[in-house]
Simulated scan of single mutants.
Amino acid sequence: MLRILLFLGTNVAILAVLSITMRILGVDDMLNHNGGGLNLNSLLIMSAIIGFAGSFISLFASKWLAKSSMGVKVIDSPVSPTERWLLQTVARLAQQAGIEMPEVGIFPSASPNAFATGWNKNDALVAVSMGLLQNMNKDEIEAVLGHEISHVANGDMVTLTLIQGVVNTFVVFFSRIIGHIVDRTVFNTREGYGPAYWITSLIAQFVLGILAMMIVAWFSRWREFRADAGGAALAGRQKMISALQRLGQTKPEPLPDEMAAFGIAGGGLHELFASHPPLEKRIQALQAAAS
């Protein structure tokens, strides 16, 4: 909770500093010329509401979304030795990581993969695919589970949501300002807004949204290295390396878009937009840390 409050406080301060800076630099005057000025304070509030609303809705619905979209079967009462081992292993790793026991589930995919999600570290879901259980040995599966437990313990789902909300806020904020400037200075609109405002705002939002995706993807890649290190600490470094090597051999299919950032493996159209670093770099990072 303290991490969340500090992060929110930091971003509120950023918004306040941005507003003050724009006034000192005279941006307010430029936006207000010719009448029909833009209220930056109101725009900041509106942008923050728009930016964070979708992110938090997705966060709080993440477990339900994962279960419904991935067909996750939560293990309430284990009916096989594999299910019992899964529950026992997750319970042990969760205790080591200092979090509450998450829900554990299996989803029907032949591709080896796993993910963790949930709105806080004590109300999470860890799920593995049938393909993971069939293509990896117990040591490798334990390492994957340790990786996912580390995501939960690090609060990665919440932090990623907050970062997404912040970048969304700035995308909305600056796209509206750009639209306003073009509408007032280029097309000299005096009352209300003309078509140029809406068209320019949409174009700016698209371009800024691409830059925002790069920022979020960078953080997602960084937290994968941290989760790998956490998985190595919980299950053993060699087990984690072996698990990543096995993933490299099997080339897992990506998870659906809404769950891609939470999986053990993933990719993107380009490395700048990828949610996960290349497996080779992740293995090299673990090997370098051991030397």
Rank of each mutant, 00 (worst) to 15 (best):
L2N: 13
L6G: 10
L6Q: 06
L18Q: 02
I24Q: 14
M30Q: 13
L38C: 07
N39F: 01
L40F: 01
L43V: 00
M46T: 10
S47W: 01
S47V: 04
I50T: 10
S58N: 14
K63T: 14
K67F: 07
M70G: 11
M70S: 12
V72A: 08
K73I: 05
K73T: 10
V74R: 03
I75F: 07
I75H: 08
D76Y: 12
S80A: 10
R84S: 15
R84V: 08
R92W: 09
A97K: 10
P102H: 02
P102K: 03
P102M: 09
A110M: 10
A114N: 09
A114S: 10
T117C: 09
G118E: 01
N120G: 02
K121W: 02
D123N: 14
G131D: 02
L133T: 03
Q134L: 12
M136Q: 13
N137L: 05
D139Q: 11
D139N: 13
D139F: 04
E140D: 07
I141A: 06
A143V: 14
V144D: 03
I149F: 03
S150D: 05
H151R: 12
N154D: 14
N154A: 15
G155D: 08
G155S: 07
D156K: 02
M157W: 07
L162Q: 13
Q164P: 03
Q164Y: 11
V166P: 01
N168I: 13
N168Y: 05
T169N: 01
F174K: 09
F174C: 12
F174T: 02
S175Y: 00
I178L: 13
G179S: 09
I181Y: 12
G192N: 02
A196T: 04
A196R: 09
A196G: 03
Y197D: 01
Y197V: 00
I199G: 03
L202E: 01
Q205I: 05
V207L: 13
L208I: 14
G209I: 02
A212Y: 09
M214R: 10
E224D: 03
E224T: 13
A229R: 14
G230H: 09
R237P: 03
Q238M: 13
K239L: 06
R246T: 14
L247A: 08
T250P: 00
E253N: 04
P254C: 05
L255T: 07
M259Q: 14
F262V: 11
G263H: 05
I264D: 04
I264E: 05
G266Y: 02
G267V: 00
G267S: 13
G268I: 07
L269C: 06
H270I: 10
A274Y: 06
S275W: 08
S275A: 12
L279P: 06
A285S: 15
Q287L: 11
